[in-house]
Simulated assay, not measured.
Amino acid sequence: MSTVISTPNNEGLKFEILLIVGIGLAGGFAVGAQAQIAGSMGDRIGGAAGSFKVHLGGALASLALLIVRRGESISEWRHLPWYMLGSGFLGLILYLTLSQTIPKLGATSAISLVVVGQLLVGLLIDHFGLFDASVRSIDSMRIAAAVLLLAGAYMMLR
């Protein structure tokens, strides 16, 4: 991220960046909390049953939000690429992964592995511009960050 120089003209930009960082952190908190819930629920009712309950709850919450937002552009779903239509399958993989790893490794270790996986796929997505992403080449700083994150995950697992 580029450095923001404080001038009267970019106060709005600084606020926008802080807001985006806050939203990102809120998403991380949600994933972290859901991870532990997924692990506990998977232990109690099974991975597939827990995944169904989580996705059903998410579908109902999304439907309510969609109603409030007057449908957004949902009628355009037919024009989406195949990989967007099948992305719910990735949520199933994540849920089943968490329901298996959290009871055995604990929340911190399991979430560390998920974060490392997200970083690695993020590097590939950015580097190759996959799924409509802007291209951001892998450079030495990104490689160093990935190595440090891998080292941190390794330390969490010990």
Rank of each mutant, 00 (worst) to 15 (best):
M84Q: 14
G91S: 07
A61C: 15
M41V: 11
S62N: 05
S40Y: 06
D126Y: 00
G50I: 11
M156V: 09
L119R: 01
A61H: 05
V121D: 12
Y83K: 05
K104G: 06
L157F: 12
Q36N: 09
S109L: 06
S51L: 04
S6K: 13
T101E: 07
A33Q: 04
A33E: 03
Y95V: 09
L92G: 12
V121E: 11
A33M: 07
P81E: 11
P81Y: 09
G27Q: 01
G88I: 05
G39P: 00
A107P: 07
G106V: 07
G46W: 00
F29M: 12
G71F: 05
G129F: 00
I111H: 01
Y95S: 11
S109E: 09
L123Q: 07
L94T: 15
A35R: 03
A61Y: 01
G57M: 12
P103G: 04
G27Y: 01
I74H: 08
F131I: 15
I125C: 10
L96G: 12
S40A: 06
R70M: 09
I138D: 12
L85W: 12
S140F: 10
A107S: 12
P8V: 11
G46I: 02
V116Y: 06
Q100N: 12
T101I: 04
G39V: 02
E72Y: 12
A64F: 02
L85D: 05
H55L: 13
E16W: 13
L130Q: 04
L90E: 13
M84T: 11
A49H: 08
A145M: 14
T97R: 00
G129E: 03
G86Y: 05
L148R: 13
W82D: 07
Q36W: 07
F52T: 10
G46R: 03
F128S: 10
G27L: 05
E76H: 08
S2W: 08
H127A: 10
L94H: 14
L13H: 14
V121R: 04
T101R: 08
I45H: 00
F52W: 05
A30F: 07
A110Y: 01
